[in-house]
Simulated scan of single mutants.
Amino acid sequence: MKRHFDDIQLGSIELFCLAAEEGSFTAAALSAGVTPAAVSRSISRLEERLGTRLFMRTTRSIRLTESGRAYFEQCRQALTQLVEAEREVMGKQLEPAGELRISIPTTYGHHRILPLLPRFRERHPGVRIDVHLSNRNIDFVGEGYDLAIRVRAQPDSTLNARHLEDARLVVIAAPEYLARAGTPTSLDDLAGHDCIQYELPSSGRRISWLFTDNGKEREILATGNYCCSDDVLGGVTLARHGAGLFQTYRFIVEKELEEGSLVEVLPEFGGRSRPFTLLYPHGRHVPLRLRAFIDFLMECTQEWKV
């Protein structure tokens, strides 16, 4: 294989990544044990080699250009792979280590994933976990995430997808609401009830309620005087306090249903679910810490199905 980089060029790439991560030539210099002038010269050599500006510079700050950010993401992944390959060969990374950045929807995070993280770190104490709880779609490359979990994930050739579970849906209400408004016994009865709606933050669309009716799947766009967006737990809280009916995931309200503070409504029309999918970038080396976390989650989904 023909040599493409010399030692100086590889060192310049490392200093460039340090400067991008630290947001400062001075901080990168301190981290690398060199002078700020040496960092500046290294990055200037890279820019000359590439024929493009990597940073926008002012007297007080530096900021990656569009080309610089794209180059940084590729270089960071390449350097990470080199480090991990060296550790594996030397037998030093027998255990997963390093930072794992994950993005999870708020509800799924609170009720499914966050409670599991201490158990994962008991197995792999060398892994640090940075959790992003949000219902928005993230940019894996631009934001540096290793893994995301999403509902109804769309096909994407740049991402690997692993099915986690089909989360069962249930319609709930507080006993005091049912005492006041009556208990619906058919899907047509929903038209006479206050049905709390949920609006998707990505599209502003209000989602339909899903049912099974005589073996056929039905979708109903329920109506009412309340609508929540961004956080499904808002609808659960409203239902708990007697605002109306709400369709949500059973795993969120299992405790309340057992205690009787919430009641399942129209169970004979239930059985529908929505899929949760684990996503991570395709076509790149999968770090040991990410492989370990994926295996751990897949193991946990088997426990949920018991």
Results as ranks from 00 to 15, higher is better:
Gly234Glu: 07
Phe251His: 10
Leu245Cys: 05
Arg206Trp: 04
Glu264Ala: 11
Lys216Met: 08
Ile220Lys: 08
Gly224Val: 08
Gln247Ile: 05
Ser208Asp: 15
Glu256Cys: 02
Asp213Ala: 05
Lys216Cys: 09
Lys216His: 13
Cys227Pro: 00
Ser203Trp: 04
Arg205Cys: 05
Cys228Val: 08
Gly234Ala: 09
Leu238Cys: 07
Leu245Glu: 02
Gly204Thr: 14
Tyr198Glu: 07
Glu264Leu: 05
Pro201Tyr: 13
Ala239Arg: 07
Arg250Ser: 14
Gly242Arg: 09
Leu257Gly: 11
Asn214Pro: 00
Val236Asp: 11
Glu254Phe: 00
Cys227Ser: 11
Leu266Thr: 14
Ala239Cys: 13
Leu238Val: 09
Asp194Ser: 13
Glu217Asp: 09
Gly244Gln: 00
Val232His: 15
Arg240Val: 01
Leu245Phe: 05
Glu254Asn: 06
His241Gly: 03
Gly260Gln: 02
Gly215Asn: 02
Val236Asn: 13
Val236Leu: 11
Val263Tyr: 04
Gly260Ile: 01
Leu262Phe: 04
Leu200Asp: 13
Arg218Cys: 08
Cys228Phe: 04
Lys216Gly: 00
Glu254Ser: 07
Gly244Ile: 02
Thr223Asn: 08
Arg205Met: 13
Gly244Tyr: 01
Gly234Tyr: 06
Phe211Lys: 04
Ile196Ser: 04
Phe211Gln: 04
Cys227Ala: 04
Leu200Glu: 11
Gly244Ala: 01
Cys195Asn: 15
Gly260Thr: 03
Gly204Val: 12
Gly260Glu: 03
Val265His: 11
